[in-house]
């Protein structure tokens, strides 16, 4: 039996490039990324949009093959999807619209290879755990955005994997819902002790959820910095109100700022200070 604290996931010098159109040539998305993630750790990947965070997550989950380098889970090299060890929660609504919430979870268990007799019970238990007990027989379109993402989370949790990979799971939700679901996730985290990699583009979400925030550079993405966030899960509104939270959030933004500038073209930095419209300055503060 493995114990908390040892290495669960190893990313060794992973690079990735793909052919973008015949003329455009190779587009490099990841440049020699190396990373170790401990068992039970919650790691957030943050970086400018389009930098390759999601690509890295998909490589770790075996959905995309790296151009060079390897990913190991428990010392074994990942060569394809490993649904017994790794579960995904994707951005947006990826529940099958033609099935009820319960059927969605059951079909995931069927794909994973769980015997037919166990599926129903496990699906119902997991749905109850995320507070969707009464919505098991609803279709996805009958649920709110937040509920749909909770159902997606239930689908992933039902697989009972040690590792959970989450690709901007709350990105399509409004800020209040996203904050609330973040709290829920933190509570869940404290209970299950899963190893989680969470891709986000929200500074607050990263600091709130992560034990460690990994800041990526603009494309081709490399690791720019790592910030450790102290504080045991579950975290709540008090954590978010602490001065340390604001401090780390600002630290994170300072690290990301250059990279975002590279991505969006950097208008702000080139203007003389006094020429910046006061409105913009206020918003940034």
């Amino acid at each position: 039996m493995a114990f908390a604290g040892d290495v669960a996931i190893t990313v060794e010098k992973v690079s990735h490039a793909y052919l973008k159109g015949a003329q455009a040539g190779l587009l490099q998305t990841l440049r020699e990324v190396s990373l170790e993630i401990r068992r039970g750790e919650m790691v957030c990947l943050i970086g400018p949009s389009g930098c390759g965070k999601s690509t890295l997550l998909n490589i770790i989950g075996g959905l995309i093959q790296p151009s060079t380098g390897v990913v190991k889970v428990d010392g074994r090299v990942i060569r394809g999807p490993t649904p017994n060890e790794i579960a995904f929660v994707f951005q947006d609504n990826t529940l099958f619209p033609w099935s009820t919430i319960l059927e969605n979870v059951k079909v995931a268990l069927e794909f994973q290879g769980v015997p037919a007799t166990e599926r129903e019970g496990r699906a119902r238990t997991t749905l109850a755990a995320v507070g969707l007990k009464d919505f098991a027989d609803h279709y996805p379109h009958q649920l709110s955005g937040g509920m749909k993402q909770r159902a997606s989370l239930a689908r992933a949790l039902a697989l009972q994997t040690g590792i959970l990979l989450m690709d901007e799971p709350f990105a399509a939700l409004d800020e209040q819902t996203r904050t609330y679901l973040g709290e829920e996730l933190s509570r869940l985290l404290a209970k299950t002790g899963k190893t989680i990699i969470f891709v986000t583009h929200s500074l607050s979400e990263a600091v709130f959820l992560a034990d460690r925030v990994i800041v990526m550079t603009a494309r081709p993405a490399a690791i720019k910095a790592t910030i450790a966030v102290a504080g045991a899960h579950p975290r709540g509104p008090a954590f978010m109100a602490s001065p340390r939270f604001a401090e780390q959030r600002n630290e994170l933004y300072a690290l990301l700022r250059d990279e975002i500038e590279k991505t969006v073209g950097g208008l702000v930095g080139e203007e003389p200070e006094e020429a910046a419209p006061p409105m913009l300055a206020e918003q940034r503060g």
Partner: peptide, 27 residues
Amino acid sequence: ARFVTVAQSLGATRWQMFKRVLLPAAL
């Protein structure tokens, strides 16, 4: 394509992919 990716990540076989994803989605 997202439905196909989800099914792949869950380890669906070719037959499961056909029966549970492609067929109902295209029906």
